[in-house]
Simulated scan of single mutants.
Amino acid sequence: MSTSYYAPQGGHPPQTQLTADRAVFTDAFALIPKGVMRDIVTSQLPFWQGTRAWVLARPLSGFAETFSQYIMEVQPGGGSDKPEPEAEAEAVLFVVEGELTLTLDGVRHVMAPGGYAFIPPGAEWRARNDSQAPVRFHWIRKAYEFVDGLEVPEAFVTNEQAIVPSEMPGTEGRWSTTRFVDPTDVRHDMHVTIVNFLPGGVIPFDETHVMEHGLYVLEGKAVYHLNQQWIEVEAGDFMWLRAFCPQACYAGGPGPFRYLLYKDVNRHAKLKLFR
């Protein structure tokens, strides 16, 4: 499987660049194209040194409400010994460029591109850049939904290269999913996977479902059908889809089209919105 992952570099466009871009924000979805991820929209985070973050998604009333997603850029010598401020938060880290040293429950892991870590709520972890070049990685956060009688899933660290993608039935391998957890394991209340399409592969119907999505395009390009609008996307773009937003896509080639996908799963719908 390919290890080509797009990572933003920041910078600032020249005054001669055209102002209009592909960015879209509707009541059903948002598209944040890669050209928007400039220096001016980064944030600093408490207790992180030598680090800046592009905040791609956060819980927003009336839109997507279950998760946040950052692209973290950590300079050599930077990182955090106190990364997560909320005790109930779970996380997935996915490295797209450079080398991240993750210490998780006392065990040190050196994560290369394609590296994936699941961090359950309450875990002790630190993230440092001990290399000589910047490291860039996705950090997806969700408030874990505890269920009486279910144990919290254990932490783990792996790499995409260690996992064989699961082909979608009837697609002859044109559409597959790289799954990092067993989809039948109901201890997990979110899935972060990689979805893979060969050129010409499609989602041949408008998916319309309760799960919210964050989709970061790692590689390639495609045309997405979102709530009756066709939009072109390419490596480095981010799509943010609220629940029940109709969605389908066509992978245009010439190479594979791949994206990092978040969705919330495996929990009852809350019947009391305000407690």
Rank of each mutant, 00 (worst) to 15 (best):
P13H: 15
R22P: 09
T19S: 15
V24E: 06
A23H: 04
A7G: 09
A28G: 01
T26D: 00
P8L: 09
G11R: 07
T19L: 11
Q9F: 09
G10F: 07
I32N: 05
D39L: 03
T19M: 08
F29W: 06
R38E: 12
P14G: 07
L18N: 07
P46L: 09
A23E: 14
G11A: 10
L18H: 07
V36S: 14
T3S: 10
L18W: 08
T3I: 12
S4H: 14
L45W: 08
L31Q: 00
T19C: 00
P33E: 02
T3Y: 12
Y5E: 10
P46G: 13
V41L: 02
I32Y: 12
A23V: 01
F47S: 11
P8I: 05
F47I: 06
T16M: 09
H12R: 15
Q17P: 03
V41R: 11
L45T: 02
Q15W: 08
L45A: 14
V41I: 15
K34I: 00
T16A: 12
I32C: 11
L18V: 06
A7D: 14
S4K: 11
L31T: 02
S2A: 13
F25H: 04
V41P: 03
R22Y: 02
T19K: 12
K34A: 08
F47L: 12
Q17R: 15
T42Q: 10
V41W: 02
F29V: 02
K34P: 00
D27M: 04
F47R: 11
Y5L: 06
T26P: 01
T19Y: 08
L18P: 01
A28T: 03
F47T: 14
L31V: 03
A23W: 02
P46M: 14
G35I: 02
R38Q: 07
D39F: 04
F29N: 04
T16C: 06
D21F: 03
P46E: 14
L18Y: 07
P13F: 11
Q9L: 08
F25W: 15
T3D: 14
Y5S: 04
V36E: 10
V24I: 14
P8G: 03
V24S: 09
K34C: 09
L45N: 08
V24R: 13
R38P: 00
M37S: 03
M37K: 12
Q44W: 10
P33Y: 09
Y6R: 09
Q9I: 07
L45D: 06
T3Q: 05
A28I: 01
Q44D: 14
G35W: 00
A20F: 05
D21H: 04
S4W: 05
P13K: 12
L45V: 11
P13N: 12
D39M: 00
D39C: 01
T26H: 10
T19Q: 08
P8C: 00
I32L: 13
Y5T: 01
P14T: 11
G10W: 12
S2G: 04
M1L: 12
L45P: 00
F29P: 01
D21C: 10
M37H: 08
D27A: 03
G35N: 15
Y5F: 15
L18D: 13
T42N: 01
P14L: 12
M37P: 01
L45E: 09
